[in-house]
Design a protein around this nucleic acid. Structure first.
Length: 289
DNA sequence: CACTTGACCTGTCCGC
DNA sequence: TGCGGACAGGTCAAGT
């Protein structure tokens, strides 16, 4: 489930691999994964070169020399994996490993570059998508018009978090953290991890939080996001970086996917409960209602 | 307007 | 072993 650190890791990886490469062709086998007109593809994608790769919230932006951009959302199971021309494309059979030979049965879109390398968009559950739109129009997409600030930007302070949370006064703090219009890029993993760090029960109402708790939540949130980027993100089931490798944050996780194990702070058994329709991991001793 | 629920999908796991 | 159902969770549209 790619969240901010996972998408940031892919962005860093793609920026080392893609710029200046020229797209020769593209293929896809699931129209919803690539809902673009053939005309736009021929005019603005084929024969264009990659300028740079950017990220906003959980969305990747691949800027092209045609002044169009590939806007990519990985949703839960999306992967973007690059293979150089020396890779043995399509040989053999997909193995039991997380990523077998590419392309495989979950490959939705393949981008072919003139030097023989390829970029695969894999997405087991087909929720993700790749859209080709004019670069100047990206900021006008509904999602970008309403999405909240980047939590790791230099100008985002704990007071900004407090102000943004006012938009979801009557929600639980977990539902508010997951709301992309409040803050960009937080998903289930880093919501649970940061709430544990700040010793806040995820069901607590936003209005109920003291300033000192919001300040602590801000510190924990920015800490876990930065740590996870350093670790290359979290690989739970599907996430892989641009080279097809796993991230290691989950080996540092304190509560996420650790139900039945002990809280690293107090030794209490970690519980998995349901908050905001999401599986939620807490230490019942550290995080009280 | 604020907030919740259902839909979009596939694969895995659990109980019978 | 097969089979139904719950679950995994990001976002949007529809519903309360």
């Amino acid at each position: 489930m790619p969240e901010l650190p996972e998408v940031e890791t892919i962005k860093i990886g793609l920026n080392k691999l893609l710029p200046t490469l020229k797209i020769s062709s593209v293929s896809f086998d699931w129209a919803k994964s690539f809902p673009n007109s053939a005309n736009d593809v021929n005019q603005f994608l084929i024969n264009s070169s990659v300028m740079s790769v950017k990220r906003r919230a959980k969305v990747l932006l691949i800027e092209l020399s045609s002044n169009y951009s590939l806007v990519i959302h990985l949703k839960m199971t999306g992967q973007l994996v690059f293979r150089s021309k020396d890779y043995n494309f399509g040989a053999g059979h997909p193995g039991k490993s997380l990523l077998g030979q590419l392309p495989d049965k979950s490959t939705r879109v393949s981008f072919n570059f003139t030097n023989g390398s390829k970029l695969f968009f894999n997405d087991q559950r087909k929720f993700g998508w790749v859209r080709l739109i004019p670069t100047v129009e990206v900021k006008n997409l509904d999602f970008f018009k309403k999405v909240g600030p980047e939590p790791l930007s230099d100008t985002f302070m704990w007071t900004n978090l407090k102000e943004r949370l006012q938009r979801r006064k009557r929600s639980s703090i977990k539902a508010a953290l997951l709301d992309q219009s409040v803050i960009a890029g937080i998903g289930n993993i880093y919501a649970d991890e940061s709430l544990w760090g700040a010793k806040i029960h995820p069901s607590r109402m936003v209005t109920d939080l003291k300033d000192s708790e919001i300040k602590s939540l801000y510190q924990e949130l920015t800490y876990v996001l930065r740590l996870s980027i350093k670790k290359g993100g979290s690989t739970d089931k599907n996430y892989l970086n641009a080279e097809g490798k796993k991230g290691s944050y989950l080996s540092f996780a304190r509560v996420f996917r650790r139900e039945g194990l002990t809280c690293p702070r107090c030794g209490t058994t970690i519980l998995k409960i349901r908050v905001a329709q999401r599986g939620t991991h807490i230490c019942p001793y550290c995080q009280k209602l």
